[in-house]
Design a binder for these strands. Structure first.
Lengths: 259, 259
DNA sequence: TCTGCTGTATCGCAATGCAATACTGTTTAT
DNA sequence: ATAAACAGTATTGCATTGCGATACAGCAGA
């Protein structure tokens, strides 16, 4: 392990390496051969062999009997299941999101902040979109999403500023905002109005509105989001039809009241 | 490791143990202390300490700063994300499920067979139900679910019989079928009609219909399912309104045609 | 303040995971 | 066809690394 020199004595390297094997699978690498795994993880071929073998025996990797390639197993979904039970917000959020989705008949999402990214935790797709926009677990740079901006809009000045300065940005479409001053404006507007809007950030012709879910300290860690097509919606209709129920839903989920 | 004596030399015990720590979290144990983890995994306290520490450092466990308890982290959802990209059926299924859900305005699920259980892979909840019925990754005994029966109905005799004889059953409601002969009837009926119906198996007052998704060999490994309330639906309306589009959807997802 | 708890740190031993290497089987090019 | 190239599988000796007993610290409640 050349990267991390002096890890304390209660660090189990073999476990960390094994998990790095799991992390090697992503949207561009849905299945991998042993050799490819070795390459991607930077580990020795025989190390990967043992780790992958163990993961396979323990049911974490599925092995195609003919190509010998490895793929994520159903166990990966079971972990998501366990996650849902452990997240204190999800239990309240789910029924309210369902109602919102039924009412709006538009795609509704629930996302949380995870470091400097947002991650989709619950998704209720209503319209056909591209695949990545309809499955859970997707991480996106927080500054580029309506969810991230809605959440940041509730944070105290110093934290918010630090985020705006330092958090990463990535160009997804030609219209992705890469200018941090514009992002600051967007967040301040969100702070004033109680919700954030973003346009064409992740995909073109997409309009997203997000309302933060505040904890007892007023600081949000999650948001409810509604994503619609700019073909069918504009600012006015958004504000009239979508924003009010969206805010209601967010407030209903917020744990502050129940404490 | 007393349980598995003679594991071959390419087995990394530390990795397996670490993963067992992850598996210790489930619906009844959403968060665990170090001591509780040691108990549940049957491992030594200091072993668990090191493993949990490693998992925490690597971002797999979240540690509550005040209670010191450990919880699943967002990484668990990221694994689900990777899983979705790797599952060859999910990409086709998703848009079609969305359409079906919009059309029926009822809860639609996509589940696969996983050993002797079924596992929910995609869920589009439309009505409020209990929490477990609306999140992905849930495993249920295949013989008790409409999905499992729909899938088994496409299997050749010997496999099907072996499953009916040996696969596990568990009582979820007072009306859960525990009689294997009845289950055989149900599966045979499904084979004749092309879809399976179940009633009150998992929760009372629930009606579920499932249509198998067959591979090129005619053998199903997945099914589309629609779950409705027996309060609003009966056999007739189910057959008229739900079954036809359900079968259409299942056929549209089946990969056989595209090969 | 004492007692019992739960989480954190230390340490010597040997079990265990490491990487080099050799083997097997399947695919590609000549 | 035959050979060469490649990917997956097995073996082995060595020392690194993970093991668990034990001792320490920080916080409850009595």
């Amino acid at each position: 392990m050349p990267d991390a020199e002096k890890r304390d004595s209660l660090f189990v390297g073999a476990l960390a390496k094994g998990l790095r094997v799991l992390r090697a699978f992503d949207e561009t690498h849905p299945e991998l051969s042993l050799g490819a795994l070795a390459q991607r993880t930077g580990m020795d071929k025989s190390t990967v062999q043992r780790l992958a073998n163990t993961l396979h025996q323990e049911g974490w990797l599925t092995k195609d009997p003919v190509t010998r390639r490895l793929r994520p197993s159903h166990a990966w979904l079971e972990l998501a299941y366990a996650y849902y039970w452990s997240d204190p917000l999800v239990g309240n959020a789910m029924p309210k999101l369902i109602e919102l989705s039924r009412h709006l008949e538009e795609t509704v999402n629930f996302a949380e902040i995870s470091g400097d990214h947002t991650i989709y935790v619950l998704r209720l797709p209503c319209q056909r979109t591209h695949f990545a926009a309809s499955i859970i677990g997707r991480r996106l740079p927080a500054l580029s999403t309506s969810v991230g901006r809605a959440i940041l809009s509730t944070w105290p000045e110093p934290d918010r500023d630090a985020a705006i300065e330092n958090w990463p940005l990535k160009e997804f479409t030609p219209r992705t905002t890469l200018d941090r001053a514009s992002i600051r404006n967007s967040i301040e507007e969100a702070a004033a109005r109680g919700f954030a809007i973003s346009r064409d950030e992740m995909i073109l012709n997409e309009l997203a509105v997000a309302a933060p879910i505040c904890g007892p300290d007023g600081r949000a860690i999650a948001a409810v989001q509604c994503s619609v097509s700019a073909y069918s919606w504009n600012d006015d209709s958004l504000l009239k039809k979508i924003v009010p129920p969206l805010l209601d839903t967010a407030n209903a989920i917020s744990p502050s009241l129940r404490m």
